[in-house]
Design a protein around this nucleic acid. Structure first.
Length: 557
RNA sequence: UGGGGGAUCGUUCAAUGGUAGGACACAUGGUUUUGGUCCAUGGAAUCGGGGUUCGACUCCCUGUCCCCCAGCCA
Protein backbone atom coordinates (compact mmCIF):
# COMPACT_ATOMS: atom_id res chain seq x y z
CA UNK A 1 0.00 0.00 0.00
CA UNK A 2 1.52 3.30 -1.01
CA UNK A 3 0.71 6.76 0.24
CA UNK A 4 -1.06 7.59 -3.01
CA UNK A 5 -3.48 4.69 -3.08
CA UNK A 6 -4.93 4.41 0.38
CA UNK A 7 -6.62 1.19 1.31
CA UNK A 8 -10.37 1.64 1.44
CA UNK A 9 -12.31 0.61 4.53
CA UNK A 10 -15.88 0.42 5.75
CA UNK A 11 -15.93 4.04 6.87
CA UNK A 12 -14.68 5.25 3.50
CA UNK A 13 -17.33 3.11 1.86
CA UNK A 14 -20.03 4.78 3.96
CA UNK A 15 -18.65 8.19 3.03
CA UNK A 16 -18.45 7.28 -0.66
CA UNK A 17 -22.07 6.19 -0.52
CA UNK A 18 -23.11 9.38 1.27
CA UNK A 19 -21.27 11.43 -1.33
CA UNK A 20 -22.99 9.53 -4.10
CA UNK A 21 -26.36 10.28 -2.55
CA UNK A 22 -25.57 13.95 -2.08
CA UNK A 23 -25.88 13.73 1.69
CA UNK A 24 -24.82 16.90 3.56
CA UNK A 25 -24.32 18.65 0.21
CA UNK A 26 -21.18 16.62 -0.30
CA UNK A 27 -19.60 18.06 2.81
CA UNK A 28 -17.22 15.91 4.89
CA UNK A 29 -16.51 17.14 8.39
CA UNK A 30 -14.96 15.00 11.14
CA UNK A 31 -13.55 15.74 14.55
CA UNK A 32 -11.04 14.41 17.04
CA UNK A 33 -12.59 14.90 20.51
CA UNK A 34 -10.10 14.03 23.27
CA UNK A 35 -10.89 14.59 26.92
CA UNK A 36 -7.99 16.64 28.37
CA UNK A 37 -7.51 14.32 31.33
CA UNK A 38 -4.26 12.65 30.27
CA UNK A 39 -1.66 12.40 27.58
CA UNK A 40 -2.41 11.07 24.12
CA UNK A 41 -1.16 7.58 23.28
CA UNK A 42 -0.69 5.71 20.05
CA UNK A 43 -4.28 4.51 20.20
CA UNK A 44 -5.38 8.12 19.95
CA UNK A 45 -3.00 8.49 17.03
CA UNK A 46 -5.16 6.03 15.15
CA UNK A 47 -8.25 8.12 15.77
CA UNK A 48 -6.34 11.25 14.80
CA UNK A 49 -5.10 9.69 11.58
CA UNK A 50 -8.56 8.42 10.67
CA UNK A 51 -10.36 11.68 11.34
CA UNK A 52 -7.79 14.12 9.99
CA UNK A 53 -6.92 11.70 7.19
CA UNK A 54 -10.52 11.53 6.04
CA UNK A 55 -10.77 15.31 6.02
CA UNK A 56 -7.58 15.55 3.96
CA UNK A 57 -8.56 12.90 1.45
CA UNK A 58 -12.13 14.10 0.96
CA UNK A 59 -11.32 17.79 0.93
CA UNK A 60 -13.20 18.28 4.15
CA UNK A 61 -12.45 19.57 7.60
CA UNK A 62 -11.53 18.03 10.90
CA UNK A 63 -11.96 19.83 14.20
CA UNK A 64 -9.76 19.37 17.21
CA UNK A 65 -12.27 19.61 20.03
CA UNK A 66 -11.63 19.13 23.72
CA UNK A 67 -14.42 17.22 25.37
CA UNK A 68 -14.05 19.07 28.65
CA UNK A 69 -17.31 18.26 30.41
CA UNK A 70 -15.79 16.99 33.66
CA UNK A 71 -13.87 19.71 35.54
CA UNK A 72 -12.62 17.41 38.27
CA UNK A 73 -10.41 15.43 35.87
CA UNK A 74 -9.36 17.97 33.29
CA UNK A 75 -6.39 20.29 33.21
CA UNK A 76 -4.68 22.77 30.93
CA UNK A 77 -1.47 20.76 31.10
CA UNK A 78 -3.27 18.06 29.14
CA UNK A 79 -4.78 20.35 26.54
CA UNK A 80 -1.34 21.76 25.86
CA UNK A 81 0.22 18.34 25.48
CA UNK A 82 -2.60 17.21 23.20
CA UNK A 83 -2.19 20.22 20.95
CA UNK A 84 1.54 19.58 20.78
CA UNK A 85 1.03 15.92 19.95
CA UNK A 86 -1.53 16.42 17.19
CA UNK A 87 0.69 19.07 15.68
CA UNK A 88 3.75 16.84 15.91
CA UNK A 89 1.88 14.01 14.21
CA UNK A 90 1.55 16.35 11.28
CA UNK A 91 -2.06 17.51 11.33
CA UNK A 92 -3.58 20.95 11.57
CA UNK A 93 -7.02 22.26 12.28
CA UNK A 94 -8.33 25.29 10.47
CA UNK A 95 -10.55 26.63 13.24
CA UNK A 96 -9.91 26.11 16.87
CA UNK A 97 -8.97 24.32 18.92
CA UNK A 98 -12.57 24.03 20.00
CA UNK A 99 -13.98 23.24 23.42
CA UNK A 100 -17.18 21.51 24.46
CA UNK A 101 -17.32 24.00 27.32
CA UNK A 102 -17.92 26.76 24.78
CA UNK A 103 -21.32 25.18 24.16
CA UNK A 104 -22.44 24.93 27.80
CA UNK A 105 -25.02 27.71 27.37
CA UNK A 106 -26.46 26.09 24.28
CA UNK A 107 -26.57 22.72 26.03
CA UNK A 108 -28.42 24.26 28.93
CA UNK A 109 -31.00 25.78 26.59
CA UNK A 110 -31.43 22.45 24.85
CA UNK A 111 -31.99 20.83 28.23
CA UNK A 112 -34.77 23.32 28.95
CA UNK A 113 -36.21 22.48 25.57
CA UNK A 114 -36.14 18.78 26.41
CA UNK A 115 -37.88 19.46 29.72
CA UNK A 116 -40.57 21.45 27.92
CA UNK A 117 -41.00 18.53 25.55
CA UNK A 118 -41.74 16.45 28.63
CA UNK A 119 -38.65 14.35 27.92
CA UNK A 120 -36.51 15.24 30.91
CA UNK A 121 -36.97 15.56 34.65
CA UNK A 122 -35.10 16.44 37.79
CA UNK A 123 -34.52 13.43 39.99
CA UNK A 124 -33.92 13.77 43.75
CA UNK A 125 -32.79 10.18 44.21
CA UNK A 126 -29.30 9.49 45.49
CA UNK A 127 -26.64 7.89 43.35
CA UNK A 128 -27.20 4.61 45.11
CA UNK A 129 -30.94 4.73 44.57
CA UNK A 130 -30.49 5.50 40.91
CA UNK A 131 -28.10 2.59 40.52
CA UNK A 132 -30.40 0.22 42.37
CA UNK A 133 -33.45 1.17 40.37
CA UNK A 134 -31.67 0.95 37.02
CA UNK A 135 -32.32 -2.79 36.93
CA UNK A 136 -29.86 -5.36 35.63
CA UNK A 137 -28.95 -6.91 32.32
CA UNK A 138 -31.92 -9.22 32.59
CA UNK A 139 -34.40 -7.21 34.71
CA UNK A 140 -35.99 -3.88 33.86
CA UNK A 141 -35.47 -0.82 36.02
CA UNK A 142 -38.18 0.95 37.97
CA UNK A 143 -39.39 4.47 37.47
CA UNK A 144 -38.20 7.19 39.76
CA UNK A 145 -40.87 8.62 42.10
CA UNK A 146 -39.85 12.03 40.74
CA UNK A 147 -40.39 11.03 37.12
CA UNK A 148 -43.72 12.78 36.72
CA UNK A 149 -43.02 16.24 38.02
CA UNK A 150 -44.65 19.05 36.12
CA UNK A 151 -42.76 20.88 33.43
CA UNK A 152 -42.68 24.05 35.48
CA UNK A 153 -41.44 22.25 38.56
CA UNK A 154 -38.66 20.66 36.48
CA UNK A 155 -37.67 23.96 34.95
CA UNK A 156 -37.56 25.65 38.34
CA UNK A 157 -35.58 22.86 39.93
CA UNK A 158 -33.12 22.66 37.02
CA UNK A 159 -32.67 26.42 37.21
CA UNK A 160 -31.97 26.10 40.93
CA UNK A 161 -29.46 23.36 40.19
CA UNK A 162 -27.72 25.75 37.84
CA UNK A 163 -27.89 28.57 40.40
CA UNK A 164 -26.05 26.49 42.94
CA UNK A 165 -28.93 25.98 45.31
CA UNK A 166 -28.01 22.32 45.81
CA UNK A 167 -24.94 20.40 46.85
CA UNK A 168 -23.07 17.82 44.82
CA UNK A 169 -25.19 14.75 44.18
CA UNK A 170 -28.42 16.17 45.57
CA UNK A 171 -30.17 16.24 42.23
CA UNK A 172 -29.64 15.26 38.61
CA UNK A 173 -31.43 15.97 35.38
CA UNK A 174 -32.45 12.77 33.60
CA UNK A 175 -33.93 12.05 30.21
CA UNK A 176 -37.33 10.43 30.34
CA UNK A 177 -37.03 7.52 27.95
CA UNK A 178 -37.76 3.98 29.10
CA UNK A 179 -36.73 2.34 32.36
CA UNK A 180 -37.44 -1.09 30.90
CA UNK A 181 -35.40 -0.70 27.73
CA UNK A 182 -33.23 -3.73 26.98
CA UNK A 183 -30.53 -1.18 26.23
CA UNK A 184 -29.47 0.02 29.66
CA UNK A 185 -28.23 3.30 28.23
CA UNK A 186 -31.83 4.21 27.47
CA UNK A 187 -33.06 3.73 31.06
CA UNK A 188 -33.49 7.42 31.81
CA UNK A 189 -29.81 8.39 31.43
CA UNK A 190 -28.43 11.27 33.45
CA UNK A 191 -27.96 14.50 31.50
CA UNK A 192 -26.58 16.81 34.15
CA UNK A 193 -24.94 16.31 37.50
CA UNK A 194 -24.08 18.91 40.13
CA UNK A 195 -20.35 19.46 40.48
CA UNK A 196 -19.16 22.41 42.51
CA UNK A 197 -15.75 22.50 40.89
CA UNK A 198 -13.62 24.99 39.03
CA UNK A 199 -13.47 24.31 35.33
CA UNK A 200 -10.19 24.90 33.48
CA UNK A 201 -11.92 27.28 31.08
CA UNK A 202 -15.28 28.39 32.47
CA UNK A 203 -13.98 28.81 36.00
CA UNK A 204 -16.85 28.95 38.49
CA UNK A 205 -19.54 29.96 36.04
CA UNK A 206 -21.14 26.53 36.22
CA UNK A 207 -21.85 24.06 38.95
CA UNK A 208 -23.81 21.69 36.74
CA UNK A 209 -21.99 19.81 34.02
CA UNK A 210 -23.40 17.79 31.12
CA UNK A 211 -22.75 14.06 30.79
CA UNK A 212 -21.03 12.62 27.74
CA UNK A 213 -24.11 11.17 26.06
CA UNK A 214 -26.00 14.41 26.26
CA UNK A 215 -23.08 16.65 25.38
CA UNK A 216 -21.37 14.80 22.59
CA UNK A 217 -24.09 14.72 19.98
CA UNK A 218 -24.86 18.37 20.63
CA UNK A 219 -21.19 19.28 20.17
CA UNK A 220 -21.10 17.38 16.90
CA UNK A 221 -24.35 18.92 15.76
CA UNK A 222 -23.30 22.49 16.55
CA UNK A 223 -20.08 22.04 14.61
CA UNK A 224 -21.84 20.50 11.63
CA UNK A 225 -19.91 17.27 11.92
CA UNK A 226 -21.05 14.90 9.19
CA UNK A 227 -19.37 11.71 10.39
CA UNK A 228 -18.80 11.26 14.10
CA UNK A 229 -16.25 8.49 14.37
CA UNK A 230 -15.68 6.78 17.69
CA UNK A 231 -14.68 3.44 19.12
CA UNK A 232 -16.72 0.26 19.47
CA UNK A 233 -17.74 0.67 23.10
CA UNK A 234 -20.01 3.55 22.05
CA UNK A 235 -22.04 1.34 19.75
CA UNK A 236 -24.70 0.77 22.40
CA UNK A 237 -24.81 4.53 22.97
CA UNK A 238 -25.71 5.32 19.38
CA UNK A 239 -29.48 4.93 19.97
CA UNK A 240 -29.14 7.58 22.66
CA UNK A 241 -27.04 9.83 20.44
CA UNK A 242 -29.73 9.57 17.79
CA UNK A 243 -32.60 10.00 20.24
CA UNK A 244 -31.34 13.30 21.64
CA UNK A 245 -30.76 14.82 18.22
CA UNK A 246 -34.17 13.68 17.05
CA UNK A 247 -35.94 15.21 20.05
CA UNK A 248 -34.02 18.44 19.63
CA UNK A 249 -34.71 18.47 15.86
CA UNK A 250 -31.22 19.72 15.08
CA UNK A 251 -28.55 18.77 12.54
CA UNK A 252 -27.91 15.07 12.95
CA UNK A 253 -24.41 13.72 12.33
CA UNK A 254 -23.87 10.00 11.77
CA UNK A 255 -21.99 8.12 14.48
CA UNK A 256 -19.72 5.35 13.18
CA UNK A 257 -17.75 3.00 15.40
CA UNK A 258 -14.45 1.24 14.71
CA UNK A 259 -12.22 -1.08 16.76
CA UNK A 260 -9.65 0.75 18.86
CA UNK A 261 -5.98 0.02 18.41
CA UNK A 262 -4.33 -2.50 20.70
CA UNK A 263 -0.67 -3.48 20.63
CA UNK A 264 0.93 -6.42 22.35
CA UNK A 265 3.51 -6.01 25.13
CA UNK A 266 1.99 -2.73 26.21
CA UNK A 267 -1.08 -1.22 27.84
CA UNK A 268 -3.29 1.35 26.23
CA UNK A 269 -5.66 2.71 28.80
CA UNK A 270 -5.21 6.17 30.24
CA UNK A 271 -6.00 4.84 33.70
CA UNK A 272 -3.19 2.29 33.56
CA UNK A 273 -0.73 4.71 31.99
CA UNK A 274 -1.54 7.20 34.73
CA UNK A 275 -0.88 4.52 37.32
CA UNK A 276 2.55 3.83 35.80
CA UNK A 277 3.33 7.52 36.08
CA UNK A 278 1.83 8.09 39.53
CA UNK A 279 3.56 5.08 41.06
CA UNK A 280 6.87 5.99 39.43
CA UNK A 281 7.23 2.82 37.42
CA UNK A 282 8.30 5.20 34.67
CA UNK A 283 9.81 8.66 34.81
CA UNK A 284 6.72 10.44 33.48
CA UNK A 285 4.17 10.57 30.69
CA UNK A 286 7.04 11.09 28.25
CA UNK A 287 9.16 8.21 29.51
CA UNK A 288 10.57 6.64 26.33
CA UNK A 289 9.04 3.29 27.30
CA UNK A 290 5.52 4.70 27.34
CA UNK A 291 3.16 4.25 24.37
CA UNK A 292 2.22 7.92 24.73
CA UNK A 293 2.96 10.13 21.77
CA UNK A 294 5.25 12.21 23.95
CA UNK A 295 7.06 9.04 25.04
CA UNK A 296 7.40 7.77 21.50
CA UNK A 297 8.62 11.17 20.37
CA UNK A 298 11.26 11.26 23.09
CA UNK A 299 12.24 7.70 22.23
CA UNK A 300 12.95 8.79 18.66
CA UNK A 301 9.90 7.60 16.75
CA UNK A 302 9.08 9.67 13.69
CA UNK A 303 5.55 10.96 13.07
CA UNK A 304 5.67 9.33 9.64
CA UNK A 305 6.42 5.93 11.13
CA UNK A 306 3.40 6.21 13.40
CA UNK A 307 1.14 7.34 10.59
CA UNK A 308 2.35 4.53 8.36
CA UNK A 309 1.88 2.00 11.12
CA UNK A 310 -1.65 3.18 11.75
CA UNK A 311 -2.43 2.87 8.05
CA UNK A 312 -1.15 -0.68 8.07
CA UNK A 313 -3.39 -1.68 10.96
CA UNK A 314 -6.51 -0.81 8.98
CA UNK A 315 -9.95 0.37 10.05
CA UNK A 316 -12.36 -2.41 11.00
CA UNK A 317 -15.02 -3.35 13.53
CA UNK A 318 -13.20 -6.47 14.66
CA UNK A 319 -11.26 -6.30 17.91
CA UNK A 320 -7.67 -7.33 17.64
CA UNK A 321 -4.15 -6.85 18.91
CA UNK A 322 -1.52 -5.57 16.54
CA UNK A 323 2.01 -6.88 16.74
CA UNK A 324 4.53 -4.41 18.12
CA UNK A 325 6.83 -5.83 15.43
CA UNK A 326 4.74 -4.03 12.83
CA UNK A 327 5.37 -0.73 14.59
CA UNK A 328 9.09 -1.53 14.77
CA UNK A 329 9.06 -2.33 11.09
CA UNK A 330 7.36 0.95 10.19
CA UNK A 331 9.90 2.76 12.33
CA UNK A 332 12.96 1.10 10.79
CA UNK A 333 11.52 1.59 7.33
CA UNK A 334 11.34 5.34 7.90
CA UNK A 335 14.54 5.71 9.89
CA UNK A 336 16.51 3.77 7.30
CA UNK A 337 15.75 6.56 4.85
CA UNK A 338 16.37 9.41 7.28
CA UNK A 339 19.00 8.49 9.84
CA UNK A 340 22.55 9.73 9.58
CA UNK A 341 24.97 6.86 10.06
CA UNK A 342 27.49 7.53 12.78
CA UNK A 343 29.96 5.38 14.70
CA UNK A 344 29.45 4.62 18.35
CA UNK A 345 30.86 2.04 20.73
CA UNK A 346 28.62 0.88 23.54
CA UNK A 347 31.12 -1.46 25.24
CA UNK A 348 34.57 -0.15 24.44
CA UNK A 349 37.62 -2.35 23.89
CA UNK A 350 40.86 -0.50 23.20
CA UNK A 351 42.80 -1.35 20.06
CA UNK A 352 46.37 -0.18 19.41
CA UNK A 353 47.46 -0.20 15.80
CA UNK A 354 51.13 -0.85 16.38
CA UNK A 355 52.40 0.03 12.93
CA UNK A 356 50.42 3.25 12.68
CA UNK A 357 52.42 6.46 13.32
CA UNK A 358 52.09 8.03 16.75
CA UNK A 359 50.71 11.52 17.24
CA UNK A 360 49.00 11.41 13.90
CA UNK A 361 45.37 12.05 13.06
CA UNK A 362 43.78 11.30 9.74
CA UNK A 363 40.40 12.58 8.68
CA UNK A 364 38.56 9.79 6.92
CA UNK A 365 35.59 10.35 4.62
CA UNK A 366 32.34 8.81 5.84
CA UNK A 367 29.10 8.52 3.91
CA UNK A 368 26.26 9.93 5.97
CA UNK A 369 23.54 7.74 4.56
CA UNK A 370 23.98 5.11 1.86
CA UNK A 371 20.22 5.28 1.25
CA UNK A 372 20.31 9.01 0.57
CA UNK A 373 23.15 10.49 -1.45
CA UNK A 374 21.97 14.02 -0.71
CA UNK A 375 22.82 13.47 2.98
CA UNK A 376 26.46 13.98 1.95
CA UNK A 377 29.67 13.04 3.71
CA UNK A 378 31.56 13.98 6.82
CA UNK A 379 35.10 13.60 8.17
CA UNK A 380 35.85 11.40 11.17
CA UNK A 381 39.24 11.40 12.91
CA UNK A 382 41.27 8.20 12.89
CA UNK A 383 44.42 7.58 14.90
CA UNK A 384 46.74 4.94 16.37
CA UNK A 385 44.44 4.04 19.25
CA UNK A 386 40.79 3.30 18.70
CA UNK A 387 37.86 1.65 20.44
CA UNK A 388 35.88 -1.19 18.99
CA UNK A 389 33.00 -2.99 20.65
CA UNK A 390 33.80 -5.89 22.96
CA UNK A 391 31.24 -8.01 21.17
CA UNK A 392 33.21 -7.60 17.95
CA UNK A 393 36.21 -9.49 19.28
CA UNK A 394 36.77 -13.10 20.28
CA UNK A 395 40.10 -14.59 21.12
CA UNK A 396 39.28 -17.89 19.48
CA UNK A 397 36.12 -17.36 17.45
CA UNK A 398 34.05 -19.99 15.68
CA UNK A 399 34.11 -20.05 11.88
CA UNK A 400 30.82 -18.22 11.44
CA UNK A 401 31.98 -15.27 13.52
CA UNK A 402 32.77 -12.66 10.87
CA UNK A 403 34.49 -10.27 13.24
CA UNK A 404 37.89 -9.78 14.79
CA UNK A 405 39.85 -12.63 16.37
CA UNK A 406 43.47 -13.41 16.99
CA UNK A 407 45.17 -13.58 13.61
CA UNK A 408 42.10 -12.40 11.75
CA UNK A 409 41.68 -9.43 9.48
CA UNK A 410 38.66 -7.16 9.39
CA UNK A 411 37.75 -3.86 7.84
CA UNK A 412 37.37 -0.75 9.95
CA UNK A 413 34.51 1.03 8.26
CA UNK A 414 35.72 3.79 5.96
CA UNK A 415 39.30 3.43 7.28
CA UNK A 416 41.66 0.45 6.90
CA UNK A 417 41.99 -3.29 7.15
CA UNK A 418 43.48 -4.37 10.46
CA UNK A 419 44.78 -7.73 11.65
CA UNK A 420 44.87 -8.76 15.28
CA UNK A 421 48.36 -9.74 16.34
CA UNK A 422 48.30 -9.75 20.10
CA UNK A 423 46.00 -9.72 23.12
CA UNK A 424 46.70 -7.97 26.43
CA UNK A 425 44.97 -9.40 29.51
CA UNK A 426 44.77 -8.31 33.09
CA UNK A 427 45.42 -10.45 36.16
CA UNK A 428 41.84 -11.78 35.97
CA UNK A 429 42.47 -13.10 32.49
CA UNK A 430 40.17 -10.48 30.99
CA UNK A 431 41.04 -8.93 27.67
CA UNK A 432 41.75 -5.25 28.23
CA UNK A 433 43.47 -4.29 25.03
CA UNK A 434 44.36 -5.79 21.69
CA UNK A 435 47.17 -5.00 19.29
CA UNK A 436 46.67 -4.92 15.58
CA UNK A 437 48.56 -3.95 12.49
CA UNK A 438 46.95 -2.12 9.60
CA UNK A 439 47.46 -2.28 5.88
CA UNK A 440 48.26 1.25 4.64
CA UNK A 441 47.24 0.20 1.12
CA UNK A 442 43.65 -0.43 2.26
CA UNK A 443 42.87 3.21 2.89
CA UNK A 444 39.17 3.92 2.71
CA UNK A 445 38.50 0.37 3.80
CA UNK A 446 39.02 -1.24 0.45
CA UNK A 447 41.66 -3.05 -1.57
CA UNK A 448 41.67 -4.15 -5.18
CA UNK A 449 43.78 -7.22 -4.78
CA UNK A 450 40.79 -9.52 -4.43
CA UNK A 451 41.31 -9.97 -0.71
CA UNK A 452 38.13 -10.87 1.15
CA UNK A 453 37.54 -9.47 4.59
CA UNK A 454 34.76 -11.19 6.42
CA UNK A 455 33.64 -8.37 8.63
CA UNK A 456 33.35 -4.62 8.90
CA UNK A 457 33.49 -2.93 12.28
CA UNK A 458 32.63 0.53 13.49
CA UNK A 459 35.27 2.29 15.58
CA UNK A 460 36.00 5.52 17.40
CA UNK A 461 39.40 7.17 17.89
CA UNK A 462 40.40 7.09 21.57
CA UNK A 463 41.90 10.53 21.51
CA UNK A 464 38.85 12.10 19.84
CA UNK A 465 36.07 10.03 21.38
CA UNK A 466 33.14 11.72 23.04
CA UNK A 467 32.01 10.02 26.21
CA UNK A 468 28.27 9.49 26.21
CA UNK A 469 25.44 8.07 28.25
CA UNK A 470 23.27 5.70 26.29
CA UNK A 471 19.88 4.56 27.55
CA UNK A 472 18.88 1.17 26.24
CA UNK A 473 15.21 0.30 26.33
CA UNK A 474 13.38 -2.96 26.23
CA UNK A 475 9.68 -3.68 26.38
CA UNK A 476 8.08 -2.31 29.56
CA UNK A 477 6.20 -5.58 29.98
CA UNK A 478 7.29 -9.19 29.95
CA UNK A 479 4.01 -10.56 28.62
CA UNK A 480 2.32 -10.23 25.31
CA UNK A 481 -0.91 -9.33 27.11
CA UNK A 482 0.12 -7.48 30.29
CA UNK A 483 -3.50 -7.02 31.30
CA UNK A 484 -4.28 -10.73 31.37
CA UNK A 485 -3.37 -11.66 34.92
CA UNK A 486 -4.47 -14.29 37.39
CA UNK A 487 -6.66 -13.32 40.32
CA UNK A 488 -4.93 -11.17 42.87
CA UNK A 489 -2.31 -9.95 40.43
CA UNK A 490 -2.19 -6.75 38.42
CA UNK A 491 -0.62 -5.71 35.16
CA UNK A 492 2.06 -4.05 37.28
CA UNK A 493 3.31 -7.52 38.18
CA UNK A 494 4.21 -7.99 34.53
CA UNK A 495 6.59 -5.06 34.41
CA UNK A 496 9.99 -5.85 32.95
CA UNK A 497 12.53 -4.79 35.56
CA UNK A 498 15.22 -4.65 32.86
CA UNK A 499 13.31 -2.35 30.55
CA UNK A 500 15.83 0.42 31.08
CA UNK A 501 19.58 -0.14 31.09
CA UNK A 502 21.83 2.90 31.35
CA UNK A 503 25.29 2.66 29.92
CA UNK A 504 27.36 5.73 30.65
CA UNK A 505 30.70 4.64 29.39
CA UNK A 506 29.96 4.77 25.69
CA UNK A 507 32.35 6.23 23.18
CA UNK A 508 30.87 8.04 20.22
CA UNK A 509 32.38 9.92 17.33
CA UNK A 510 33.08 13.62 18.03
CA UNK A 511 30.54 14.97 15.53
CA UNK A 512 27.80 13.94 17.95
CA UNK A 513 28.64 16.79 20.28
CA UNK A 514 26.33 18.69 17.95
CA UNK A 515 23.53 16.14 18.09
CA UNK A 516 20.15 17.80 18.15
CA UNK A 517 16.79 16.74 19.48
CA UNK A 518 14.64 15.84 16.53
CA UNK A 519 17.57 14.45 14.52
CA UNK A 520 17.69 10.76 13.86
CA UNK A 521 20.89 8.77 13.97
CA UNK A 522 21.91 5.25 13.21
CA UNK A 523 24.72 4.00 15.40
CA UNK A 524 26.15 1.82 12.74
CA UNK A 525 25.58 -1.92 13.14
CA UNK A 526 23.68 -1.30 16.41
CA UNK A 527 20.44 0.56 15.95
CA UNK A 528 18.71 3.90 15.72
CA UNK A 529 19.36 6.51 18.41
CA UNK A 530 18.41 10.07 19.20
CA UNK A 531 19.54 12.78 21.58
CA UNK A 532 17.45 12.83 24.75
CA UNK A 533 16.04 16.01 26.24
CA UNK A 534 18.62 15.52 29.03
CA UNK A 535 21.43 15.92 26.47
CA UNK A 536 24.03 18.57 27.22
CA UNK A 537 27.46 19.05 25.70
CA UNK A 538 28.96 18.10 29.06
CA UNK A 539 26.83 15.00 29.35
CA UNK A 540 25.63 13.77 25.98
CA UNK A 541 22.67 11.43 26.44
CA UNK A 542 21.22 9.22 23.73
CA UNK A 543 18.14 7.04 23.65
CA UNK A 544 18.08 3.80 21.77
CA UNK A 545 15.00 4.09 19.59
CA UNK A 546 15.06 0.59 18.11
CA UNK A 547 17.73 -1.92 17.23
CA UNK A 548 18.72 -2.89 13.73
CA UNK A 549 17.40 -6.24 12.61
CA UNK A 550 20.00 -8.69 13.79
CA UNK A 551 20.11 -11.99 11.97
CA UNK A 552 23.40 -12.86 13.66
CA UNK A 553 22.09 -12.24 17.16
CA UNK A 554 19.02 -14.27 16.30
CA UNK A 555 21.15 -17.22 15.21
CA UNK A 556 23.03 -17.18 18.50
CA UNK A 557 19.90 -18.04 20.45
C1' U B 1 -29.02 -13.76 31.87
C1' G B 2 -31.41 -8.85 28.19
C1' G B 3 -29.34 -5.76 24.41
C1' G B 4 -25.43 -4.36 21.00
C1' G B 5 -21.17 -6.00 18.00
C1' G B 6 -17.59 -9.59 16.00
C1' A B 7 -15.14 -14.47 14.15
C1' U B 8 -10.18 -15.45 7.23
C1' C B 9 -2.51 -17.68 7.48
C1' G B 10 1.18 -17.00 14.04
C1' U B 11 -0.51 -11.38 13.74
C1' U B 12 -3.04 -7.85 10.74
C1' C B 13 -5.79 -6.27 6.55
C1' A B 14 -8.12 -7.85 1.55
C1' A B 15 -11.37 -10.82 -1.57
C1' U B 16 -18.83 -7.74 -1.62
C1' G B 17 -21.59 -15.48 -5.59
C1' G B 18 -16.31 -16.89 -9.84
C1' U B 19 -8.27 -18.94 -9.01
C1' A B 20 -8.55 -17.16 -0.81
C1' G B 21 -4.27 -12.28 -1.86
C1' G B 22 -0.91 -8.47 0.56
C1' A B 23 1.89 -6.73 4.78
C1' C B 24 4.35 -8.05 9.34
C1' A B 25 6.52 -12.31 11.65
C1' C B 26 9.08 -16.88 10.52
C1' A B 27 12.49 -19.95 7.29
C1' U B 28 16.00 -20.47 3.16
C1' G B 29 19.15 -18.38 -0.59
C1' G B 30 21.46 -14.00 -3.33
C1' U B 31 23.72 -8.90 -3.25
C1' U B 32 26.43 -5.76 0.11
C1' U B 33 32.53 -1.37 2.86
C1' U B 34 26.50 -1.93 8.33
C1' G B 35 25.47 -9.90 10.04
C1' G B 36 21.55 -3.14 8.16
C1' U B 37 19.11 -1.99 3.47
C1' C B 38 17.67 -4.42 -1.04
C1' C B 39 16.21 -8.88 -4.01
C1' A B 40 14.30 -13.89 -4.56
C1' U B 41 11.99 -18.28 -2.68
C1' G B 42 9.03 -21.11 0.90
C1' G B 43 5.59 -22.85 4.65
C1' A B 44 1.08 -20.93 6.63
C1' A B 45 -6.02 -19.49 7.08
C1' U B 46 -12.10 -19.05 5.70
C1' C B 47 -15.02 -21.12 13.94
C1' G B 48 -18.29 -26.10 13.79
C1' G B 49 -22.65 -28.61 11.46
C1' G B 50 -26.42 -28.45 7.80
C1' G B 51 -28.59 -26.13 3.37
C1' U B 52 -29.23 -22.98 -1.48
C1' U B 53 -26.09 -22.84 -6.05
C1' C B 54 -22.73 -25.13 -11.85
C1' G B 55 -19.87 -22.51 -8.10
C1' A B 56 -20.13 -20.04 -1.08
C1' C B 57 -15.26 -16.42 3.02
C1' U B 58 -19.60 -14.15 0.78
C1' C B 59 -26.56 -16.07 0.84
C1' C B 60 -30.02 -19.13 4.41
C1' C B 61 -30.59 -22.23 9.00
C1' U B 62 -28.25 -23.91 13.44
C1' G B 63 -24.60 -24.21 17.08
C1' U B 64 -19.93 -22.48 19.42
C1' C B 65 -16.54 -18.85 20.98
C1' C B 66 -14.90 -13.64 21.79
C1' C B 67 -15.77 -8.25 22.87
C1' C B 68 -18.96 -4.09 24.86
C1' C B 69 -23.11 -2.10 28.20
C1' A B 70 -25.84 -2.13 34.86
C1' G B 71 -20.31 5.71 36.52
C1' C B 72 -23.70 11.53 38.93
C1' C B 73 -16.44 8.82 33.68
C1' A B 74 -15.55 9.62 28.53
Amino acid sequence: MTDEQKQTNFIREIIDEDLKNGKNDGRIHTRFPPEPNGYLHIGHAKSICINFGLAQDYNGKCNLRFDDTNPVKEEDEFVNSIIEDVDWLGFDWKNGPLYASDYFDQMFDYAIKLIKLGKAYVDDQSGNQIRETRGTLSEPGVNSPFRNRTTQENIDLFQQMKNGDFGNGEKVLRAKIDMSSPNINLRDPILYRILHATHHRTGNKWCIYPMYDWAHGIEDSIEGITHSICTLEFEAHRPLYDWFLEQLEVFHPQQIEFARLNINYTVMSKRKLKLLVDENHVSGWDDPRMPTLSGLRRRGYTPESIRNFVDKTGVVKRNGVSDIALLDHSLREDLNKKAIRVMAILNPLKVVITNYPENTTEEVDCVNNPEDESAGKRKVPFSREIYIDKSDFMEDPPKKFFRLGLGREVRLKHAYYVTCENIIKNENDEIIEIHCTYDPKSKGGWSNDGRKVKGTLQWVSVQHALNAEVRLYDSLFLNESPEKVEDGKSFLDNINSDSLVINNNCKVEPSLINAKIGEYYQFMRIGYFCADKDFTSNNPVFNKTVGLRDSWGKKQK
